[in-house]
Every structure is written in structure tokens, then in C-alpha cells.
């Protein structure tokens, strides 16, 4: 019995790690840059397709793709903020107006990226097998690719957390998140910091896409599904908080795993029940202020 509980919990952690990774990028983009990036899932899709293409056509190890797809998406995100969102920020009078107009712009991006993906990769399912071998952990069996994903997710999360907590740039980002005006007065180049932040969000989406493609099939229309999970995790954990995203992801993963074990058809309904109950009890998320 204890074995079973441990098994279900570990399954939940494995799933939760994936959810957390999906969510961290969005948390940064919304929590700091105030862009509710509804096209977040499309960036994940691009990362996954990039990995699939590199693996299928050039035989490049998916883990190496991390350092190819991630930076490419970082640059794309950075450039997007420097051009599109910067001018939106300028033309919107208030943060509320900016949130509205950036949501619309992100919807446009979603449409553009998805159409390009369908025309260039096709709308069918793609996939490959990598590390899909059993690993025996003290009697319980888990998939190697999921363990690797969890390890990378936690590793990336901790690295990024330390980066935010310890480095100058990280402190500037946190300052910008808390009080943009004051941060500007303190000599922080707000626009630059926000663009970097948006870029880091895209980088995280890229990482998530690369790691996801090892465990799940890839298709051009998969984005929105992941965006929705990401939004739920982010709001559950608290906006802009990296530990929050991980806590939120793990909670969803573990609850999903327990419910799947008892009644799989309620596993997704359970996410929303938990989410709604939690918001009713604590309206700003677990780690929210």
C-alpha cells in the first residue's frame, strides 16, 4: 500500500515537473512584463517542432536541442518585445489598457505562428522515441525520459531562481516586477529589462517544448492546450513567482495523479476544481501577495 502511494506521488511529481516548466515562462511574461501571452503554447510548439526536426533530419540529440532551440526562442521573444510590445506599452495609457491590447496582439501572434507551423510542418502528428526505457527505482518503474525531464525542469528552475535572486540583472527584473516607476528612477532601463524578461519567458517555453517532445507527440495545433495548463498553474502558484510555478505545477501533477488512479475520467475536472477552490480561499494564488 505504501509502495502504491509513493508510486502515485512520484508519478505526480513527474507530471508536475512538466507543468511547472510550462508555467515558469508565462509567469515571467505576465508577472513582470504584464503580457498575458496566450501564444505561450505556440512557442512551446515551436520548441518541440524544432527538436523533432533536428532529431529527425540531423540526428541531433534532443538534450543538445535545449541549447539550440532555447536561445533562438529567447532572441525571438526579445525582439518581439523590443518591437511590438514596446510600442504597445507606449501607446496604451494605463497598465489595464496595455494588458487588453497585448492580449489581442498575442492572439494575433498565436494565429500567425500556428498557420506558419501548419504550412511548414503540416497538421499531422509527429513524434520520436528517445529514452523511452523503464528505470527501476526501488521496485517501482518509471520512464527514463520523464525522469530526465523532471531533473532538467528542477535544474532550470533552480538556476533561474538563483539568477533572479543573486545577479544584478535578476535584481533589476525583480525591481521592475514590483514597482516599474521606482525601478526606473533607480536607473534601471525598464524597457530593456522587460524585453529581457519576455525573452526569458520565451526561452523557458522553448526548454519546455524540447523536453515535452521527448514524452508526448508533437503537432501544430497543440499550443492552446498547454497555454491553458500554464495559465492555471501560474494563477494557482502566484504571478511572477518561480517557486510558485513549481508548487502550483506539483500540486496539479500530484492531484491529477491521485485522481487518475481512482477515476481517470475526472483527472482534468479535478484540476479545475482544485484551482477554483484555491482561488476562492486565497484569491491571489499560493505564493501571491
Amino acid at each position: 500500500m505504501i509502495m502504491k502511494i509513493v508510486d502515485v506521488l512520484i508519478c505526480g511529481l513527474l507530471l508536475g515537473g512538466i507543468y511547472a516548466l510550462i508555467a515558469v515562462g508565462l509567469s515571467l511574461q505576465y508577472g513582470v512584463a504584464r503580457v498575458l501571452n496566450i501564444s505561450h503554447g505556440e512557442l512551446i510548439m515551436l520548441g518541440a517542432f524544432g527538436t523533432w526536426s533536428l532529431y529527425t533530419f540531423f540526428d541531433i540529440n534532443p538534450l543538445i536541442s535545449l541549447v539550440i532551440c532555447g536561445p533562438v526562442l529567447f532572441l525571438a521573444g526579445f525582439a518581439l518585445h523590443k518591437t511590438l510590445f514596446k510600442s504597445l506599452l507606449k501607446s496604451s495609457g494605463s497598465i489595464g489598457a496595455f494588458e487588453g491590447s497585448s492580449l489581442l496582439a498575442c492572439f494575433g501572434l498565436l494565429f500567425i505562428i500556428q498557420n506558419i507551423a501548419i504550412t511548414s510542418w503540416g497538421a499531422d502528428i509527429k513524434g520520436y522515441s528517445y529514452l523511452s526505457v523503464p528505470v527501476n527505482l526501488g521496485g517501482a518503474i518509471f520512464a527514463a525520459n520523464r525522469l530526465v525531464t523532471l531533473a532538467f525542469a528542477v535544474g532550470i528552475g533552480i538556476t533561474f531562481y538563483l539568477f533572479l535572486a543573486r545577479t544584478r540583472l535578476g535584481k533589476a527584473i525583480r525591481a521592475a516586477a514590483q514597482d516599474p516607476a521606482a525601478a526606473g528612477l533607480m536607473g534601471v532601463n525598464i524597457n530593456h529589462v522587460l524585453a529581457l524578461c519576455f525573452g526569458f519567458g520565451a526561452l523557458m517555453a522553448g526548454f519546455a517544448g524540447v523536453l515535452l517532445s521527448m514524452c508526448y507527440p508533437v503537432k501544430a495545433t497543440m499550443g492552446l492546450e498547454y497555454t491553458i495548463i500554464a495559465i492555471i498553474v501560474v494563477v494557482l502558484g502566484g504571478l511572477g513567482s518561480i517557486p510558485g510555478s513549481f508548487i502550483g505545477g506539483f500540486i496539479l501533477g500530484i492531484i491529477g495523479s491521485i485522481v487518475s488512479y481512482i477515476e481517470p475520467s475526472l483527472s482534468l475536472a479535478a484540476y479545475y476544481i482544485i484551482f477554483i477552490l484555491l482561488l476562492l480561499v486565497k484569491p491571489t494564488g499560493i505564493m501571491g501577495k
Binding site: 512538466i18 495523479s257 482534468l268
Partner: peptide, 17 residues
């Protein structure tokens, strides 16, 4: 007999059972 929602991301509990 178990049913799964369309977007399920982990079926290992069912397979183990």
C-alpha cells in the same frame, strides 16, 4: 474499464493497474 478525458497527460496509473 476506465475512461480518459481527451487531453490526459499521464496514463501510467491505469497501465499499472
Amino acid at each position: 474499464v476506465k475512461s480518459t478525458p481527451p487531453d490526459i497527460k499521464d496514463v501510467s496509473p491505469i497501465l499499472k493497474e
